[in-house]
Design a protein around this nucleic acid. Sequence first.
DNA 1: TCGTGGATTTACCAAATGGTAAAAAAACAA
DNA 2: TTGTTTTTTTACCATTTGGTAAATCCACGA
Lengths: 207, 207
Amino acid sequence: MPESSVKKPSRIQLRNRRVILDAALEVFSKHGYRGATLDQIAAEAGLSKPNILYYFDGKEDIHVTLLSQLMDTWLDPLVALDPNGDPRREILDYIDRKLKMAVELPRESRLFANEILQGAPRISPELHSHLKPLFDEKCAVIAGWVDAGKLPPLDPQHLLFSIWATTQHYADFEAQARVLLGAEADPQPRALAHLRAMFGALLAQPG
Amino acid sequence: MPESSVKKPSRIQLRNRRVILDAALEVFSKHGYRGATLDQIAAEAGLSKPNILYYFDGKEDIHVTLLSQLMDTWLDPLVALDPNGDPRREILDYIDRKLKMAVELPRESRLFANEILQGAPRISPELHSHLKPLFDEKCAVIAGWVDAGKLPPLDPQHLLFSIWATTQHYADFEAQARVLLGAEADPQPRALAHLRAMFGALLAQPG
DNA sequence: TCGTGGATTTACCAAATGGTAAAAAAACAA
DNA sequence: TTGTTTTTTTACCATTTGGTAAATCCACGA
């Protein structure tokens, strides 16, 4: 059994753990936690089921590992929001990064959405330890901008909610968008233009 | 066996089908389709599992029935968008209704979100037959307002996406919002104020 | 090349789960 | 009340699924 804290993982361990996590991301994001089976993940990874359980303690272990690793990536765009930058530009750039990430990493977006939809039973600790502090920090930054008169009065918390909701919507509800937009090749450019217009209007200084 | 097309359903049938669908909504919205079990639904409904299968052909039948019945309710706010009303007021009122519905019917919102997240495997027909025509119709209405100069240039399709995303976010990602907003009693008033400000800014006539 | 520990497979298992058959019970019309 | 139909329960079943034990294979350092 691979000892996590004693020996450093071999090349095979490193490769297979990565392969398994990638397969699991594919399957979990498509079917949700309960809907995914170890057999599916094994097939996707090109490994046998017991072999997968050789690298992870169980289905839940895989899921939690995925979510934890993903959390950091997922928060990167918000981390990059610079308190010293120009407020409007910072927020609009953040929207760009967030939409780009949702479009490029739809599996990750759906994995998170699934988990939150179910009440975040397995990621709740990470939410408190990682997301919450960052959220509070950046809300304070935005509130500071508002107080300094650099932004019109607005609610930082709900502003961030709106940004998350609108950007991730394109990944999470892709099935709906496909039906409604028809065979449109790539909705991203129009989506981005719309979001920039919308949030740009909100952030515009009155007068 | 209850014959759907021949005899009219008895009082018992009517009551039990309603009880079962309500229990199923509770369970499906909480655990997703695969995560929900007939035993859970039976327990929630206070009936035995075989008794439930006496009223429905199977798990999928219950799910599809739920989704179909829900679709109408879910589209009501958009149906009420009046082509002859004042454009800005119509859209802002629509946002009010949509947010109210998401907050009051979070189980329904999550049921839909779950289904769409999984790629809409069971509701795809309804999407094409009900949602798509209504979507196209109302997009045309909004586009007409834009063409008539009653609204600033905007993308009707992505406007509706944004409204859906932001309003349903409060139901679908409630677990996240609970963590981030702390023990705040009712986020709805601030959410509504934010959404009115945001979409109000977008819809404001330039100049 | 040989031995050892890490990696993989084979053959399972127990529990959960969707579903069924048929008997029993309840409701109801005559 | 009686006969019939509807509703409910009891007792199952086959499959799926997460997981395990043990044997086997294989990479690699000495």
